[in-house]
């Protein structure tokens, strides 16, 4: 299941296991530090092994896969955009992933600007002049793809780690960037 060689992704939601059965005493949540420890050590090793650019590509791809699965399993995709956003805000809040806010939405051209405050990946990091939320970029793209049925490119344009107090993302159709 986790050790098979593969040419395409095999991850499915059920791979997460039965969390209630598996953690009857410790519960379903873990501290943010456990999440960041996992992500930043992975990132560190991947950069060492593959270089920064490849490491970022891998992180974005993983986020995209997670976003698609998250949307397909946690969200109702049959809502119109406003209601879908409202639902997504609620689920991200309930899961303590972040506080999503839409700043601009051009539905005709499918282009959006959104922010995530108290972001799981980076909020509270020391300023480094870098945007660091590549996993979020992929995650948001994956959610939008599963919802809209089209490929999206998401770029972080402001980040807590670059001195801002929130993370801002530009979301646009992949075809518009080609």
């Amino acid at each position: 299941m986790f050790k098979e060689e593969r040419d395409s992704n095999k991850f499915v939601w059920d791979d997460l296991g039965d969390l209630e059965k598996g953690r009857p005493n410790l519960g379903l949540t873990v501290p943010v530090l456990a999440y960041r420890l996992l992500q930043y050590t992975f990132r560190d090793v991947m950069i060492t092994e593959f270089g920064v650019q490849k490491a970022n590509e891998i992180i974005i791809k993983a986020g995209r896969l997670a976003g698609r699965q998250f949307c397909e399993n946690m969200l109702n995709r049959n809502l119109d955009f406003g209601e879908f956003v409202s639902q997504l805000q609620n689920v991200l809040k309930e899961q303590a992933i972040g506080i999503l806010r839409i700043e601009k939405a051009d539905l005709e051209n499918m282009r959006f600007t959104l922010t995530v405050a108290e972001d799981l990946d980076c909020s509270g990091l020391p300023p480094t002049d870098e945007v660091t939320c590549q996993y979020d970029e992929g995650f948001i793209a994956g959610i939008m793809e599963a919802y809209a049925g089209k490929s999206f490119i998401v770029k972080e344009i402001d980040c807590w780690a670059s001195g801002d107090r929130l993370c801002r993302f530009d979301v646009r159709l992949q075809e518009d960037t080609e």
């Binding site: 806010r101 300023p127 002049d129 670059s162 107090r165």
Partner: peptide
């Protein structure tokens, strides 16, 4: 506001919230 202008960060956050409220 440049990223390293930490005095400006709360205003950027306020600006973002107002944009979101406008959309809502």
């Amino acid at each position: 506001i440049s990223p390293k202008n930490f005095f400006g960060s709360p205003f950027k956050e306020l600006h973002s919230r107002l944009l979101h409220l406008t959309w809502q």
